Amino acid sequence: MSTTPMSTTPMSTTPMSATRRTGLQLLLLLAYLLVLTPVGFVARRVRDPLDRAVDRTATSYWITS
């Protein structure tokens, strides 16, 4: 019968790596909230990305390929 030594625990279960992972997740959350979200709001205020404006002079919106 073979037993495994106690020192073979994976590195991801150590308390320091859990702290680093949590810190990285918080950093990414802050980057998303403070950088990407305002950029998205400004981009949508400047230009409509789907170009949903109604063209009153168009006879049809049908696109032929």
Rank of each mutant, 00 (worst) to 15 (best):
M16V: 03
W62Y: 13
L28R: 13
L36K: 01
R21V: 10
L28N: 04
T57K: 06
M1C: 06
R56L: 11
T22K: 10
R56Y: 13
G23A: 13
T59H: 05
V35C: 15
A31M: 06
V39D: 01
R45E: 03
R20P: 00
A18N: 05
R56G: 00
V54S: 01
R56I: 03
T37V: 15
S60N: 11
V39F: 07
P10K: 05
G40Q: 08
M11Q: 08
L50N: 12
A31H: 02
R21H: 10
A43F: 05
P38L: 12
P49E: 08
V46I: 15
A43D: 10
R21L: 09
T37I: 14
P15V: 02
S65M: 05
M11N: 05
L24K: 06
T8M: 14
A43G: 01
D48F: 06
T59W: 05
L50G: 00
W62S: 10
L50Y: 12
A53T: 14
R20T: 06
T4D: 07
L29G: 07
S12G: 02
T59N: 08
R45D: 04
Y32K: 03
T3C: 04
S17F: 02
L33Y: 09
P10G: 11
R20D: 01
T22D: 06
Y61I: 00
P10R: 08
T37H: 01
T13E: 09
F41Q: 07
P38D: 11
G40C: 05
A18Q: 15
R45M: 09
M11E: 14
S7W: 12
P10S: 14
G23I: 04
Y32R: 06
T37E: 10
S17M: 12
T57N: 08
T8H: 12
M6R: 14
P10H: 10
P49T: 01
T4M: 07
T57I: 01
S7G: 04
W62V: 14
S2N: 11
P49I: 03
S17I: 01
A53K: 12
L50Q: 07
G23V: 03
T3H: 04
V42D: 05
S60M: 01
L26F: 09
V54H: 03
V42M: 08
D48H: 11
T8P: 01
M1A: 09
Y61E: 00
V46K: 13
T13H: 02
S17A: 02
P15L: 02
V42P: 00
M11V: 14
T3L: 10
L36T: 10
A31W: 09
T64E: 12
D48K: 02
A58E: 10
R45C: 03
Q25Y: 02
A43R: 15
G40M: 05
L30I: 15
L50T: 05
R21I: 04
T64H: 13
S12Y: 12
R21K: 14
V54W: 02
L33H: 11
V35H: 02
L33C: 10
T22W: 00
T3Y: 08
S17R: 03
D55V: 04
S7Y: 13
I63P: 01
M11C: 04
Q25D: 07
T59M: 03
T19I: 12
R20W: 03
M16K: 03
S65Y: 09
Y32G: 03
T14S: 08
T13V: 12
P15R: 01
S2V: 07
R44I: 07
A31D: 05
T9A: 15
R20Y: 09
R47M: 13
T64S: 13
G23Q: 14
T22R: 08
T9H: 13
P10Y: 04
P5L: 10
D48A: 05
